[in-house]
């Protein structure tokens, strides 16, 4: 993989260039998805509150810090799942490490993640969210998010090469995943057992980690219990997040290497 870094760089550059060529709004598109997610979240929260009063700053901040990582995940997975099958000419004509195709697609979406993170920072400053040192947990959570996304992209793109239905399944998952992932809501809203179940979603610890660190200004090594007695954060979630992203990527690379040799036969 290290030997292919130059190719990875070129392919990432290709994806970024192609995405914004002949697109009138250019990089502004990177912000459009998270903006819509946040707006959707505001509407959902207002509906939950009975529609009588608007939502508070904390709720807005909570949705915003999770909307950006989620949009990154959706965009990166959506584009990388067909990245092998749509490059079939390359796979059958040129030899190069095949991992670079899905990985470069994910890497190209880092532009969106960076632009989104910048926008969220501005938003947090505007609505005057208090900031504490616990913000330092955010980079770690984002790195884990990127690793988790890469692992998923390797497995999904490989699976889609053999079975084209994977792409449709992924589309459905990404569209409706927002209802099963704590973005508009917090797992604690489901009560003690519901919270545990909601946190089993591999994306949940990564997104909640960001929210707890930024909005709750809470150290992730210490459990956080809500006034109603529900565990909103437990250090075990940190371990879970580390495991799904790092081990997940490791397993994905092994699986990918195992099937890579037969790509040209099946694509």
């Amino acid at each position: 993989m290290w030997r292919a870094r130059e190719l990875l760089y070129e392919l990432t550059l290709r994806d970024i260039r192609v995405r914004y060529k002949q697109a009138a709004f250019g990089v502004a598109w990177a912000l459009l998805t998270p903006i819509f997610v946040v707006l959707g979240g505001v509407v959902a929260r207002a509906a939950l509150a009975g529609g009588h009063h608007g939502i508070d700053r904390t709720a807005l901040a909570s949705i915003a810090v999770k909307a950006v990582p989620w949009s990154f995940f959706v965009g990166a997975i959506g584009f990388s799942t067909p990245s092998l099958s749509s490059n079939s000419t390359l796979l059958t004509k040129v030899f190069f490490p095949r991992e670079v195709l899905p990985i470069s697609t994910v890497a190209a979406h880092l532009v969106d993640l960076s632009a989104g993170s910048l926008a969220v920072t501005v938003l947090l400053l505007v609505i005057q969210t208090p900031i504490s040192l616990t913000v330092l947990w955010v980079p770690l959570m984002l790195v884990l998010l990127v690793l988790f996304t890469m692992g998923s992209s390797l497995v999904l793109s490989c699976a889609n090469l053999f079975f084209r239905d994977v792409k449709y399944a992924v589309q459905i998952l990404l569209t409706f995943g927002i209802f099963f992932t704590p973005i508009f809501f917090e797992p604690a809203m489901f009560g003690p057992v519901g919270a545990r179940i909601a946190m089993m979603n591999p994306m949940a610890p990564l997104l909640e980690g960001v929210r707890v660190a930024v909005v709750e200004q809470h150290n992730l090594l210490v459990p956080l219990v809500t006034p109603t007695g529900v565990v909103a954060w437990d250090p075990i979630y940190l371990v879970y997040g580390l495991a799904t992203s790092i081990l997940g990527l490791f397993v994905a690379l092994i699986l990918f290497a195992r099937f890579e040799r037969s790509f040209a036969d099946y694509v």
């Binding site: 130059e6 190719l7 760089y9 070129e10 392919l11 550059l13 290709r14 260039r17 192609v18 060529k21 002949q22 390359l90 040129v94 190069f96």
Partner: peptide, 18 residues
């Protein structure tokens, strides 16, 4: 890639060929 310029494609294709 059809949308990229000749210059950009030289670097891309070169990288693909190692």
């Amino acid at each position: 890639h059809p949308d990229l310029t000749g210059r950009e494609n030289v670097f891309l294709q070169g990288a693909l060929m190692g």
